[in-house]
Every structure is written in structure tokens, then in C-alpha cells.
Nucleic acid binder design. Structure first.
Ligand SMILES: NC(=O)c1ccc[n+]([C@@H]2O[C@H](COP(=O)([O-])OP(=O)(O)OC[C@H]3O[C@@H](n4cnc5c(N)ncnc54)[C@H](O)[C@@H]3O)[C@@H](O)[C@H]2O)c1
Ligand SMILES: NC(=O)c1ccc[n+]([C@@H]2O[C@H](COP(=O)([O-])OP(=O)(O)OC[C@H]3O[C@@H](n4cnc5c(N)ncnc54)[C@H](O)[C@@H]3O)[C@@H](O)[C@H]2O)c1
Lengths: 222, 222
DNA sequence: AAAGTTATGTGAAATTAATGTCAAATCATA
DNA sequence: TATGATTTGACATTAATTTCACATAACTTT
């Protein structure tokens, strides 16, 4: 059986489809055509059909797509029909914020453990999740079938920690440290580089102002 | 003068170049060829040259690129040679984590104000930034030359809040709420959809397991 | 059940992005 | 200052992605 590789460009769009379909579902809408979805989402109907067709025909000619069915299929494609066990490494500002966020749960992402190297944090509980010393990571990952490690530690710590995670059989790393991780291909990495995102925003501000001749609000410190 | 539009694909790569150049600069390295950078960054030398050339010739034939000069030029392109004034709207888990993060400062992104609708938070200070009632947003944005609003409020609040920000002349919105904002083209939006990012990770885990036939937490186990 | 309508799925065309190639400029060196 | 090595910038080529267009299947209505 020939499984063709789906491009990441397509995958990146799936969560957005999923979100819109979830909203339609909640509003009790049963069916939708690629054209209607196109109007709502501001992407071409053609792209919508192409995207879905990568995974097989979910629609019906003359009818369109069944919202609930399509929603379920996308959730299967994304693998969020299954539970994922997470641990968080680095219980600082960002680590705590993520652990406290309840909405990941609703998509089947469950925080099972939290780890830090700061002894003062040991035993502290965040939404029922206890903070443990980093020494326990390896054992915890293995005995609790952890899929994903969330890395919210300083960047110089992230590289060796990623290696430890790889060595104890983690499946994926959600990396918030501002550094590239070099891992084998059996470990998936998704980077969230917030500074990069902010810089892109800065570029777009600058570009717009250049193009439209507004030099800005005088600013530069003041 | 004909200013050709640079594709967002190129822009997305600039912060990464910037990061690597910063590291080279700190290590005291003066010059680098596209081939050397290619080896370090794992992108083709051709793409590096092509990317830089979008903005004019920064290199010298037979020599390569001057690290510091290139670093400075990219920082100008990204607009981070200038200060940016930020406000944060929604001082919850995520809002506080972001406000506490000192590294944005070093790139010229400065938090000038924080706003929430919860009266219990008014007057609270986060790294010297005082939390104010949302009613004061409009006036604050105008009198303090705020460029960027960071939106860390629930998604149903984000849409009307974005409208208020647009109306009082904000230049950009850094949106963490899981919803698409519809704003005029003079306002730049950069979305950080963390759930989308997690779903992509989930997809890649699933894809890898499908491809390699490991259904459970079988481990790499060497 | 037939006729007309709708909207998918698909292959082809167009566009956009990435990679490969090489002449020409500059560097290093003797 | 001449020579050979290096490396960019520009252009050509290839690959990937998006859009177009339409035959075809299924729906709806009479
Ligand atoms: N907070 C933000 O808004 C933000 C934004 C962008 C990027 N980041 C990145 O996220 C990471 C965390 O940021 P933060 O603001 O939460 O930092 P933080 O200092 O608040 O927290 C870091 C935590 O990691 C722990 N730690 C350090 N080394 C460790 C190790 N080897 N093993 C386990 N725990 C360790 C520390 O004890 C601390 O509790 C950093 O890499 C930062 O660059 C954060
Ligand atoms: N915390 C996370 O890790 C995380 C992850 C992904 C997405 N998000 C998104 O970020 C946003 C904030 O998440 P959070 O975890 O910080 O939530 P939170 O509940 O901790 O904080 C939200 C804050 O916004 C304030 N608020 C609500 N409505 C407001 C309004 N109209 N004006 C001003 N302030 C208002 C609340 O009083 C609260 O202080 C949400 O949209 C959430 O979906 C958060």
C-alpha cells in the first residue's frame, strides 16, 4: 500500500479547518460546501477540496461535506482522537501558565508530571500535578507512557535535556526554548519561538509604514 | 521606486538567521560564507544567498558576509533596531508569563501597560508594570504611542477587543486567543495558536507511528 | 423515474518557492 | 602585480503549491 507523504503546508491548515468545523457543529449546522466554507474562512474552495482529498473523499457530490463526519475525520488525521500524556520540564513563568491552561485537556492532552531543577519547587502542585526533581524524568517517562515533553527551560539547558528525553524514548518535544534541537527522526519536534513571531510582527509594522510613508509615532524610546 | 514585495516565507526565516548571526557575533566570528552558514543551519547555501539578496547585496564575492554588518542589516529589516511599545490585555496565566519575560526587552519590545477587566487585579504590578482597567486602554494607547497590543484574553472577548484596538489606532496585535481577528490592512496581526501547534505535533507523532508500525509506547529502546 | 441542479474530485495550468549553476568580482599570496 | 582560489549575485532549472476548470456522481424536485 502506497502512503503518500502529506506536506506540512497542508497539515498546518488542518487545525484551522478543525476549529471552524467545531464552531459549525456547535451551531448545529449539518452540512457545508467547500464554497460556503471558503467564504467563511477566506481560503479558496479549491484549496479546501484539495486539502481534504489528500486523505480521501470526505464529501459527496451534489451535497457537500457532513460537518460532524468531517470534524471527526480531521480529528483522527490529527491524532487527537487519542489521549496524549504530557510532562512539563521547567516550571517557571511559561511552564506554569501552560500547565494551568485547561483547554489542552479537552483535546486529549493531559499533563501527567512537572519537573524542575529548583528544589524549592519540589512538591508544589499545579492543578493537581506535582513538581518533581529532574532526576526522576527518565523513570517517569517510561513508567507513565509519556508521549510529549514540553520544554520550558532556558535555552542552554534545552539541548542536553532534549538528549535525555530522546534517550528515554520520548515521542515528541514541544520546544519553547529559543534554540534548535537536533534529534533523531523518530522524535518529533515542534518549536514555538515566540521571539521570532514578535520579530515577524515588527517586520510587518515596518513594512507597512515604509509603504505608506508613515514613519511612526516619532518614538524610538522617548 | 519599485519596492518588490518580499514573501512571508522569506520573512519567517529572517529571525532564525538573526539568531545564528547573533551567536556567531558573540563567539567573535567576523566573517562567514553562505556555505559555512549552510552547514551550521542546515539550509542550502543557495537559499541563504537568495534570501539576503532580496534586500540588496550584503556580501562580498571571494570573502563572504561580515557577521556584524549582516546582523545589523537584518535587525534593520526586521525593524528591531527601533523600540516597540507594548501593552498586554488580559493579565491571566499567559499574560503574566509574557510580561515577566525579560528577553523581549533586549530586542526593544517594552511593556508599557497591562489591562484587565478584573477589578481585583487593578493596581497589581508585574515587573513595574501596573495593571489598569480596560476602560483606560484607548487613552493609554494614544498618549503612550503604543505599537503592539498583546491579546491574552478569552477568545470570545478577543474579537470586540480587537475592534477597540483598531479604533484607537493600534499598529499591531499579537494574538494568543484561539480565534481569527478581522482587522483592516493597516493593522498587522500575528497569531500564536498554541493548540494548533500541539495538534501538528500530534499529527507528526501519529504519522510516524503509522509509517513505522509502532502503535503503542514501544520505546526506541536502542 | 426522469430532468435539472449542485458540488465534489481530479488532472492540468499557473504561480510561487527552492535549488543548481556559473560568470564575474574580490581575496590571498607569492 | 600576476595567479589561482574563493564566493557572491544573478539567472536558469526544478520542485512544490495553489488555482482553475470540468466531467461526473449524487442530490432534489417534479
Ligand atoms: N515566559 C515567556 O513569556 C517566554 C517567552 C518566550 C520564550 N520563553 C522561553 O521559555 C523558557 C522558559 O521561560 P520562563 O519565562 O518560563 O523562564 P523561568 O526562568 O520563569 O522558568 C524556567 C524554569 O526552568 C527551571 N530550570 C532551569 N534549568 C532547568 C533544568 N535543567 N531542568 C529543569 N528545570 C530547569 C528553572 O528552575 C525555572 O523554574 C525559556 O527558554 C525562555 O526563553 C519564555
Ligand atoms: N495559558 C495558556 O497556556 C494558553 C495556551 C493557549 C492559548 N491561550 C489563550 O490565551 C488566552 C488567555 O489564557 P490564560 O490561560 O492566560 O487565561 P486566564 O483566564 O488565566 O486569563 C485571562 C485574563 O483575561 C482577563 N479578561 C477576560 N476578559 C477580559 C476583557 N474583556 N478585557 C480584559 N481582560 C479580560 C481575565 O480577567 C483574566 O485575568 C485565552 O484566549 C487562551 O485561550 C492560553
Amino acid at each position: 500500500m502506497e502512503e503518500k507523504e502529506i506536506s506540512q503546508a497542508v497539515i498546518s491548515r488542518l487545525p484551522r479547518y478543525f476549529r471552524y468545523l467545531g464552531e459549525l457543529k456547535e451551531r448545529g449546522i449539518e452540512r457545508i460546501s467547500s464554497q460556503e466554507l471558503s467564504d467563511i474562512m477566506k481560503v479558496t474552495a479549491s484549496q479546501i477540496r484539495q486539502d481534504f482529498n489528500n486523505f480521501g473523499g470526505f464529501g459527496q457530490q451534489g451535497y457537500g461535506y457532513n460537518v460532524e463526519y468531517l470534524y471527526d475525520e480531521i480529528s483522527k488525521i490529527l491524532g487527537i482522537d487519542q489521549m496524549h500524556q504530557l510532562i512539563i520540564i521547567g516550571v517557571g513563568n511559561l511552564g506554569q501558565a501552560l500547565t494551568n491552561y485547561t483547554n489542552f485537556n479537552r483535546r486529549g492532552f493531559v499533563f501527567k508530571g512537572a519537573f524542575d531543577c529548583n528544589p524549592e519547587l519540589y512538591g508544589m502542585k499545579i492543578r493537581g500535578v506535582e513538581v518533581r526533581p529532574t532526576e526522576e524524568i527518565e523513570n517517569f517517562v517510561r513508567t507513565n507512557n509519556i508521549d510529549i515533553a514540553v520544554l520550558t527551560i532556558p535555552k542552554d539547558q534545552a539541548v542536553p535535556m532534549a538528549q535525555r528525553l530522546v534517550d528515554c524514548g520520548i515521542k515528541a518535544i514541544w520546544n519553547f526554548a529559543h534554540v534548535d534541537l537536533d534529534v533523531p527522526e523518530n522524535v518529533q519536534v515542534e518549536n514555538v519561538h515566540l521571539s521570532d513571531s514578535l520579530m515577524k510582527l515588527s517586520y510587518n509594522i515596518t513594512r507597512y509604514e515604509k509603504k505608506h510613508g508613515r514613519t511612526g509615532n516619532g518614538k524610538t524610546g522617548s
